[in-house]
Every structure is written in structure tokens, then in C-alpha cells.
Amino acid sequence: MKRFLRLYMIEQKLALRSGDMLIFGVAMPVGVMILISMIAGQKQAGEGFTYLESSFAALIAVGICASAFMNIPLTIADYRDKRILKHFFATPCSPLWILGSDMLCAGGTALLSAVFMAFVSVVFLGYRMQGNVLAFMGSWLLTLVSMFSIGLLMASLCRTIKSVNAVTTLVYFPMLFLSGATIPYELFPSGLQKVANVLPLTQGIKLMKAVSMGMNLEGVWKIIVLLLGITLICIIISVKTFRWE
């Protein structure tokens, strides 16, 4: 365990050093949050909640989105291409060590994004969560795990760096802009809302919104089951199709 942590610490250091995750996953959502609160923070976005409240749960998903759909598939594809994964087979450790530590790194970046967002929102923007904070953390974790499983699936299905790059772009940007993560879902015309509903991240955001605003939670069971189902299916397919080189 100690040795695994040492490996993880180095990978985490590398992840932070590269910087792009800090921009896309941490600085960007907080920047958008500040903008939204300046433009329309206290305006009603829907019945009984403001844009600030609505955007908090949505923008916290941006960190998850960047980690799951960029960081995870790109890192795994890169390590596979460089034969770093293969090299782990020629050591007493399993390559699962490096995969595990990189998943943990991606989770660490998403967590950093969420904590920073909460800090700025509560301290500077006057945000207060109406719902139960612990339940919100649970919904965040479920969204994170289910989106990570999709990222892992992308890494498993794409064989080359080129295809991973293409798929990452195709998945990341629609998820970022059409799921309601950056542009408030409430502003979408109803046709676009229907499109957005197909995206898995939209469901995660809906769940986090409902919990954070302390809304009636009757409908969320469907979303929870859906996200658990996505996680299960993606992990099974990833494990079955994964290639080390």
C-alpha cells in the first residue's frame, strides 16, 4: 500500500505539472461561475431557485467531465503507446497499479475542482446549499464513478492515439456544452433539452442539482439506477476489451 501511494504521488505530481487539467478542469468552471453570478446570479432560473444555485451543481460537473473524457483516455492511450503499461508486466507489480493510480489522479483533479468551486462560491459569491451536503457528495461521487467508467471504455475501445484524440474531442465538447455543465440547461429550448437528456453527464448534473437544491427526490431513483447501470456495463466492456499494448 505504501509503495502504491508512492507511485500515485509521483503520477499526481506529473498530472499537476502538465497544467492543462488545472486550466480545463479547475480554473475554467470557477471562471464561468464568477461570470454567471455577475450576469444573472440572483435571477430566478426556475421555480424556487436562482442561476447561482443551478450553476453550482452544473459547473462542479465540469471537473468531472474534463477528468473523465480527456484526462483518463488520453493518459491511458499515451502510456499504452509508450509501452509504459507493457513495462509494468515485466515488474512484480500489476499494470493495474499504474491504471489505478491514474484513475486516482483524475479523481484528485475533479475533487480539487469541486473544492475550489465550493470555496469560491460560498466565500465570495454567497452561495448556500439548500440540500443535504453529505447527500450531495454522494451524488457527486456517483456521477464521477459513472463518467470515469465511460472514460475507461473510450480508452479500451480506441487502439491508437489518433483515434483516442478524435473520440475525446467528439465526446468531451458535446458533454461540456450540451449537458448543461457550462451553459445552464434551463436556457436550452425544449428540443435541445431532449438532445441533452441523452447525454449521461446531463443525468448526473440533474441528480446533483436536485440533491443540492433540496428538491423532491422521488424522480432521482431512476437516474441513480441509470448511472449505476452505465458504470456496470462500461466497466465490464472495458475490462473485456482492454489492451495493454
Binding site: 509503495r3 507511485l7 509521483i10 503520477e11 506529473l14 502538465s18 513495462h87 515488474t91
Partner: peptide, 26 residues
């Protein structure tokens, strides 16, 4: 084992790579 044309993580420093590899052995 030294594999043919080994590549390493972007941005990794020599000491970090050594530490990472050391962590894999007893």
C-alpha cells in the same frame, strides 16, 4: 528488463522516474 526503445511519461524527471521504479520492488 530494459525494453526496446523505452519511453517515459511526459514531464517526468530522472529522480521521479527512479523513485517510481523503486516503488515497484520490495
Amino acid at each position: 528488463v530494459q525494453l526496446q526503445s523505452s519511453n517515459y511519461q511526459n514531464n517526468i524527471r530522472v529522480d521521479e522516474l527512479c523513485k517510481e521504479m523503486s516503488a515497484l520492488y520490495k
